[in-house]
Design a protein around this nucleic acid. Sequence first.
DNA 1: TTTAGCACTCAAAGAGTTAGAGTGCTAAAT
DNA 2: ATTTAGCACTCTAACTCTTTGAGTGCTAAA
Lengths: 348, 348
Amino acid sequence: MNSRKLKILAAVVDEYIRTGEPVGSKAISKLDNINVSAATIRNDMAALEQLGYLEQPHTSAGRIPTFSGYRLYIDELMNPSALSDEEKCRLDRMLGGKDTPEELLIQNAAAALTEITQCAAVVTNSVPRFSVISKVEVIPTGKRLYVILLITSNGSIKNKACRLEFDLNHEQLEFFTHYIEENLSGVSVDELSEEMFDKMVAAVSAYMVSLSPLVMGLCELSEDLRQQELTVSGSEKLLSCDELDKMEVVKFIEHKNGLSDLLEETFSGIQVKFSSETSNFAIGNSSLIVSKYRKCNKEAGSLGIIGPMRVDYKKIIPYIEYLTQKISYLMSGDDEDIIITDTTADID
Amino acid sequence: MNSRKLKILAAVVDEYIRTGEPVGSKAISKLDNINVSAATIRNDMAALEQLGYLEQPHTSAGRIPTFSGYRLYIDELMNPSALSDEEKCRLDRMLGGKDTPEELLIQNAAAALTEITQCAAVVTNSVPRFSVISKVEVIPTGKRLYVILLITSNGSIKNKACRLEFDLNHEQLEFFTHYIEENLSGVSVDELSEEMFDKMVAAVSAYMVSLSPLVMGLCELSEDLRQQELTVSGSEKLLSCDELDKMEVVKFIEHKNGLSDLLEETFSGIQVKFSSETSNFAIGNSSLIVSKYRKCNKEAGSLGIIGPMRVDYKKIIPYIEYLTQKISYLMSGDDEDIIITDTTADID
DNA sequence: TTTAGCACTCAAAGAGTTAGAGTGCTAAAT
DNA sequence: ATTTAGCACTCTAACTCTTTGAGTGCTAAA
C-alpha cells in the first residue's frame, strides 16, 4: 500500500461520487493530478480490489468503492472543500439572525441542508438539560382528576392529567403542592431521575398513599422533558436516489426506525455512519452525516443529513460543520431572553 | 342499456379487481352467472365502451373499467360481502375492549385496516366539539411570562406561554382570571370563535391594554382544540401498488396534500372518492374510502383507507362500516369516565 | 338477437447481433 | 524493478427481428 494507490483510491471515490458510474482506469489516468498510465492504474486498482477498498459490479465494468473504501476516503483521504464567503453568507441568511428562536434556528438549518444537499435533513431540538424547574403546579380539574404542570426556566411546558383514587381536600392538596415545590423547584433537568421520584413516592405515600399517581405523573413528565425530539425533513429527496430502496425509505419516513438510537451513539465532532456499519437502521446503502451543536458549551442537539452512500462528503461536511458552529454560537449568545412559541396537547 | 350489460359490467369490474389484468370476453363467458357466448359479450362490451364505462389499454387487449365504470359499480352494481363472525371477532380483538383509550382505539383501527386491506389507513381523531371548557387558568411563571391553561370536559389539555409588556399585579391577574373564567367556563368547543375572542380582547383592553396577548393566546389554544388531527399510517403499502405513481405517493406521504380538504367535504355514511373526481388530491388513480364515526351520536372523526382505484370494494367497505360502527359504539358507551393518556409540549 | 368462425392487431417475450467500455495479461521499454 | 503499450477477452446495454397468444371486430349463419 503506497501513496500512489491511496491517491488512486481517492480519485476513484471522487469520480464515482461525481458521476455515479463505475470508474475505469482510463478516466483516472486523464485526471490532472494523476501522471501514470492507465495500465499502471489498472494494476493498482486490482490491488485495491484485493485489499477490499474497491469492487467491480461485473467483470468488464469500472470500479466502485466498497464500505471500507468510503471509510478510508472519509477518514484519511478526502480533501474537504472550504466554504467560500458567499456560501457562508448564504447559510447565515438562511439560518436567521441572533434573535431567531432556537426552534426556528434548527428548522432553518434543516431547510438549508435539504436544499443544498438534496438529501433528507435530520435535526434534534436542544434538550434543556441545564435549565431548571421553575414552576410546578397541581390543578384540580374534575372529580378525582388533577392536571400537573411543569415549567422549566428555558420555557418548556409539560402537562399531564392524573386520576386519583380519592379526591384531595384542600389541606392535602396544599401539602402536596408545597412538598413538590420544595423538592423540585430549582432542580436542573439533568438531575431529575427515576430514583429521585421513587424517593418522593415513598415520602408522599407516608402522608397519603393515594398521592403517588401524582408523583408518577411528574416522573413521566420529567422523562418527556429530557427526551430529545427528532425531526427529519425533506425525506422525499431520498426517493429520488435510485441507490436507495424506495420501500425502505418510506418505512423509514413512517417510523424513523433506529435513527434515534443511531444519534444516541454519536459523540462530539462531525461523524459519518454507514447503514452497513450499524444494525437496526432501516435504509440500506445510506449514509448519515451528523454533528452535535452546543449551547453554552454543552452538547445540546444534533444536526445532519441522511443520504445515499454516494454523497458529496467533501462539500457537505464543511456545510454541516459551519452550521453547527454557527448554531452553537447563536444559541449561546443570549441565554436569558427566552422566546416562547406555542405548546399544546390533546387527550381524550 | 339492459340488465345483461350491467351484469357484464359488474363481472368485468369484479374480474379486474381480482386479477389486475384487462379482462376479455372469453374470461367473462366462463363465469358461472354468465350464460351467453363470448361473441355476445364482445358486443355488449363494445357498447359499454361506447357508453364510457369500459376502456381498452390497446386494441388487442381486454377491457378495464373507467372512472364512471367504477362509480356505477360501487353505487349500484356491487354486492358487498357480509362479514363472517370470525372476521368480526378478529376486528374486535384488534380494536381492543371498552376500556381502550379513544386515541388508541383509532390507532388500532388504522393498524387493522392497514393489515387487512394492504392499503394506507387514514384516520382523524375525535374532535371534542361538544365538550365544554371546564377550566381555564393563568399562571405567572417568570418575569412578564404567563402560562395559560385550557382544559375541556373530555380531558383535552392545552397550554401556551405568553409574554406581556408589563408584569401584572395581583389585582390585575385576579381580574383577568375572573373575567375569562366567567366568559369561557362551560362554553362548548363548538361555540368558540374568533369573533368571540375579538370581543374579549376589546373588553379586556378597556381594563388594561396589555392583557390582550393573553386573550390572543387563548384564542390560539381554542383553535388548536378544534383542530382535527389527521394520521396516515401504513403508507408504505401504496408503494407496492404499481397502479400508483411512486413519486406522487411519496409527495403525498410527505405533505398529505389535499387530504384534509377531501375529508372535510365528506358527509355521513360510507363514501368512496376517486382522485380523478377531486382536484388537488395528489395521487392519481387512487381511491379514498372513508366513513365517519360518531361519539354520542355526533360526528366525531373519520376512518378509512387510501388505495389504488382497483381495490376490493366488496370486501373493504363492510370492514370499514363495521369498524366505524364499533368505534362509535365504544366511544359512546361510557362518556363519563375519561381516560387520560399524556400530554406534553416543548418550547425553547 | 345470438353465436360461430375467421382474419387482423398488438404487446410482451425471446433470440440474435452489435458496439463499446473496461479488464487482465504479456512483452517491451525505462 | 517498474511502468507502459498492445492485444485478446468479457460482459452489458441497446437494438432489431421474430414469435406467440390473447383479444378484438366483422360477417354470415342459426
